[in-house]
Design a protein around this nucleic acid. Structure first.
Lengths: 221, 221
DNA sequence: ATTAAAAGTGAGTGCTCACTCATTTTATTG
DNA sequence: CAATAAAATGAGTGAGCACTCACTTTTAAT
């Protein structure tokens, strides 16, 4: 039954499940590292600082993680997979086609789900944004996940809605980039640029999706 | 005649003009630093590496720049002002209202101009993206420039086009964020994510602005 | 041609960094 | 409660870092 073409994908997903039992101190190390990495950046953070914040001897860090970079990757790696998780489901396309008759509803559901995820993982996402361009491992994983999986699968959904006459006829990648830009722009605004600006999150998403579907031009013209 | 409320702004603009004559070696230092900072990140770059690449003794760097951070700021600071330059013109609003009768044309002209600028300054923009969150000076300058100047001025333009019935009636900041997200998303895509993907830049911008104005929904419904 | 200032040099300095390892503490198991 | 393994420790280490400074070379002005 299993599709061996996507074996590596299953491996990735399994990695995410907290298989290895972690010591209490190991967890404290991960928490401290996440905190400081997100505040000062990976390169500007020293292992001694992490050890101090975690209440742990410096040697303990290196008992669990061979290098400082190892520690970074064991924080940033799993979140990448979780970030793409909704698109990794074997039957993503079927799942999405059925419940959503309207394209709006599909994009809205996706935006709400990923906004929630981003809000719950703000610190790690900041680390990710900062470090991905300089860590080839992360870059490679992102490219594989996004272009091979996420892109192809959403492309099918877009084409489906185009055939149903709900979306303008343009290259799917352009429609996807438009949607992604708007949603990511909205999420980054509220998480990093203006985190204190009070909003009704659901309403915010509804309005953003409305502008995505209908544009900013006056519709009565 | 001069508006003293915007004195600091004039100071900023003057700083950008290459007032101080630079030695040949000083220029080489700036070029080398820009190159390596953008490749490896500021913290991961050593001054000795910069000196080597610039073909200069390490001490020479510190004759011109008190600290390594000073060197970074003298690269990243001026670009911030240039990035916001089109909006800094005293009579930005008047200038923009007159030649552009249609909102499309205004956004299109702005997008083209800033795309061109970004393409000519790719490396420094990468440094900027990477370092702004961790350098309070840059963060402060960005906030002052964007919220006090850029935001207020584009807000007036948006309101103008709203009154002319060309833009949907929504809070101007939401319209601005939508436009900014789309244009920035397009620029980042072509400069960093898929730089080898061949495009007709003008056509690309036209199509992006079309999606911004009219949305991705089917218009014949 | 003289002289003073500015630009450039590179060996040297103290410090911090990531990482190691011999040793001690804690957990596990029959 | 031994016996053994696993986890944790922290002083120690060499390498590399940003930065200094006494000195030399270049430039500019008279």
């Amino acid at each position: 039954m299993s599709n061996y073409q996507e074996k590596w994908l299953e491996d990735l997903l399994q990695l995410t499940e907290d298989t290895g039992k972690k010591t209490e101190k190991q967890i404290r190390i991960l928490e401290a590292a996440t905190e400081i990495f997100s505040q000062k950046g990976y390169e500007a953070t020293s292992t001694s600082e992490i050890a101090q914040k975690a209440g742990v001897a410096e040697g303990t860090i290196f008992r669990h993680y061979k290098t400082k970079r190892d520690l970074l990757l064991s924080i940033a790696g799993p979140i990448l997979v979780k970030l793409a998780a909704p698109f990794l489901l074997r039957d993503f396309v079927k799942l999405m086609e059925l419940p959503y008759e309207k394209a709006d509803d599909f994009f809205r559901a996706l935006a709400k789900d990923r906004f929630k995820f981003a809000r719950e993982n703000t610190k790690i996402i900041k680390i990710l944004i900062h470090e991905v361009p300089f860590q080839p491992e992360l870059m490679g994983q992102i490219k594989r996940l996004s272009s091979d999986i996420v892109f192809n699968r959403i492309e099918k959904v877009v084409e489906h809605f185009q055939e149903a006459g709900q979306l303008v006829s343009a290259p799917p990648w352009r429609i996807m980039r438009t949607g992604a830009s708007l949603v990511i722009g909205m999420i980054l605004t509220h998480l990093f640029i203006a985190p204190d600006f009070p909003i009704d999150e659901d309403e915010e998403i509804d309005l953003a999706i409305d502008l995505l579907m209908n544009g900013i031009g006056n519709r009565s013209m």
